[in-house]
Simulated assay, not measured.
Amino acid sequence: MKTASQKIFLAAALALAPVNMAAADDFQLWTAVAANGPVEEDGRFLVWFDGHARFRDDAGDLGVSILRPGVGWRLNRDLSLWAGYARVVSRQENAADVEENRLWQQATYGVGDVLGGSVTGRSRLEQRFIDGGGDTGWRVRQLLRYSRPLTGTPLSAVVSNETFIAFNDTDWGAASGYDQSRNFVGINYKATDHLAVESGYMLNHIRRDNAADAFNHVVSVSLNLSL
């Protein structure tokens, strides 16, 4: 007999699974390391860093690398405000790499407790600058994440959605409106009080104006350090 936690996890996996696997454009592997938290124990001043290596073409080639540092301020237990910079390099098969600089601002917050787990959110605003482009792309990203501990284990079932909306068209190809979404289901393993490993499946849908939309099937693995 399945436990309540197993039933929730199975239902989430089925809900996030792509309807038509034949529509997949690519299998990818996304890896990440992240660290964030207060500079001093129980302090209000916060630091943030995440780095990414994303492999495309059946996980055979490095496609995207990201370095994203930032700082923040904890307003209270449930709300923190952040700002930072990101360097993003997207490698192209038959063209020069696309090099992008971003400024970003975000709020991270607790939403509430649901079905024995917790819902958290992250609202991020980005200003995107592409080398060789003259326009600044404005984009908002909304993340909602549900995590439920699996009783008697250091594991938690995790489900999340992040949706990207662009505010404007640019001369380097960004189009206003819905940009992409990332739907994730996986397991978080809490190795210590400060270190966790999270892995699972992500369906990444990308809107394309002049071609068929992309559906990337991603194995996602991240190492997360809480300061």
Results as ranks from 00 to 15, higher is better:
K2C: 04
T3P: 10
A4F: 05
K7Q: 14
A15N: 05
A15L: 14
V19E: 13
N20M: 08
M21D: 11
A23E: 15
L29G: 06
N36R: 15
P38K: 07
F45C: 04
F49N: 08
G51Y: 02
A53S: 11
D57S: 09
A59R: 00
L62P: 04
V64W: 00
R68Y: 02
G70E: 06
V71H: 01
R77Y: 02
W82L: 04
G84Q: 04
V88I: 13
S90E: 15
Q92T: 06
D97W: 07
E100N: 08
L103E: 04
Y109S: 06
V111P: 01
D113S: 13
L115V: 10
V119Y: 02
L125P: 05
E126D: 15
F129R: 12
D131G: 03
D131K: 14
D131F: 03
G132A: 11
T136P: 05
T136I: 15
R139S: 05
R141F: 04
R141Y: 04
L143D: 01
S147N: 06
P149L: 09
L150S: 06
S156L: 08
A157M: 01
W172F: 15
A174F: 11
A174R: 14
G177E: 03
G177F: 02
Q180Y: 08
F184I: 12
E198W: 01
E198C: 03
Y201C: 12
M202G: 05
N210M: 01
A211Y: 04
A211T: 10
A211K: 10
S226I: 05
